[in-house]
Simulated assay, not measured.
Amino acid sequence: MNDAELAELLGRFGLSEKEIDTYLTILNHGEAEAATIAEDAGVSKRYVYSLSEDLEERGFVQVNDHLVPTTIRANPPEKVVDQLENQLDAMGPALEERFSATQPTEDDFEVIKARATVIKRVEQLIDRATRELTLAIPASRLDSVRDALRSAVHRGVFVVLLLSDVDDPADVPDVAGVSTVARAWSQAMPTMVTADSQSGLVAPPDIVLRTNSDTRAIAFVQEELGPVIVGSFFGNYWPPAEELYVVDPPKLPVSYRNFRHAVLAATLHLKDGDDLRARGRGRFVDDGETSFDGVVTGVRQGLVKPTNNSFPVEHSLVVETEDGEYTVGGEGAFIEDIEADELTLYRE
């Protein structure tokens, strides 16, 4: 790096052209009297004294005013760089807080360059979820979003958690209370999060695992893109992962607006041998509004093992009603008979 490039970088930290020339002169000498520095830098001796006090406060130099004559010594560059980094780290959270408060919510896409911002956006998405959250994140970063996940579970969000980069699932921290279902995968994979299939984030592994990554993450708010990310999550990453945790079956009756949550609950009750019924409202996929009420005779799902769905996003119930047997799916259903808006599971 030549002098001009170094001077430009120093200028970004608030030093004027004269201050830069004087500081570089001090660096070249290592330690010198004010008169020597003033002569070499082409400034007054009084200016050197005044500037040196400012540079000392900022950690660039040390003023030895106990000596006669006074000398000015440059601090080791690594110490200066460390101090600047500490100042930037301390400033980061305050900048993030202000930036988040004014971040336009209507933007479709946001390119993110910093790890701290990625984690902040993940937390915001977790807080935004009202029905369903899918999250894939390195196991080493779980604690940074643990409180947000716990809050989501507490308010009834269906939390599907996939921890990546796991050497030994036995070493994974407890995920009870921060997920509805959870799995672990040994591979490093993108950090992926969707909130209610409407907004989300995708980040390469490096940007979350390293502080000096030159990769970028993308956050989005787009209803058309959310289901694509959810499909990739369930299709490419969820199946090979090892099951870590499944919540206990809920007490009945229980109502859901998130259909995958309902399918999980039905699966768990059927596994326990419970007699289960379902009633709800929706529409026939090929014709008009309807309601249904009947015995749940089966499920098609890929949330917990053993899975039996024929493609990754197939999560449906088989309900035997007085009018016959119907398959029931959630929002966007197209191979099932009925697309349900809401559903209640109960016993007779």
Rank of each mutant, 00 (worst) to 15 (best):
I229Y: 08
F259I: 09
F292R: 13
V246T: 04
F220I: 08
R283T: 09
Y256K: 13
V202Y: 10
A266H: 00
S197F: 11
R279Y: 14
H261L: 07
D275Q: 11
L201C: 06
N236G: 07
L252A: 03
V254Q: 05
L270N: 06
V246M: 00
V247T: 04
G280T: 14
G235Q: 02
P204G: 01
P205L: 02
D248G: 04
K271A: 09
D287L: 07
N258E: 09
S255R: 03
P249A: 00
E243Y: 10
V299T: 09
I229K: 08
I207L: 08
S255Y: 02
E223K: 12
H269Q: 11
N212A: 11
D274M: 08
P227E: 14
D274W: 10
G288H: 12
E243M: 03
I207G: 01
T267L: 02
E223L: 08
P239R: 10
R216K: 15
G200P: 09
G231N: 14
V228N: 15
A203S: 09
D293T: 04
P239Q: 01
R210Q: 11
A266P: 01
V202Q: 07
V221H: 15
P205W: 00
D274N: 14
V230F: 12
R277E: 08
D286F: 08
E223W: 15
G294A: 08
G273W: 06
P227Y: 08
Q222R: 15
T297F: 02
R216G: 09
V263M: 09
G231S: 04
A241L: 03
V221S: 12
D272A: 06
K251C: 08
G273N: 04
D286L: 13
A266R: 04
G226I: 06
T297K: 04
P249W: 02
L252D: 03
R281K: 12
L244C: 04
D248W: 05
V254L: 10
L268R: 05
W238N: 10
G298Y: 04
S213P: 13
D206C: 10
G294W: 06
E289D: 15
G273R: 05
V202F: 08
A262Q: 09
D272S: 01
Q198L: 03
V296K: 01
L201T: 14
V246E: 02
Q198T: 02
R283Q: 03
S232R: 12
A262E: 11
V230Q: 15
R260V: 07
D274L: 11
R300T: 06
L276I: 01
V285A: 03
V230G: 13
P227D: 08
A241S: 10
D214N: 13
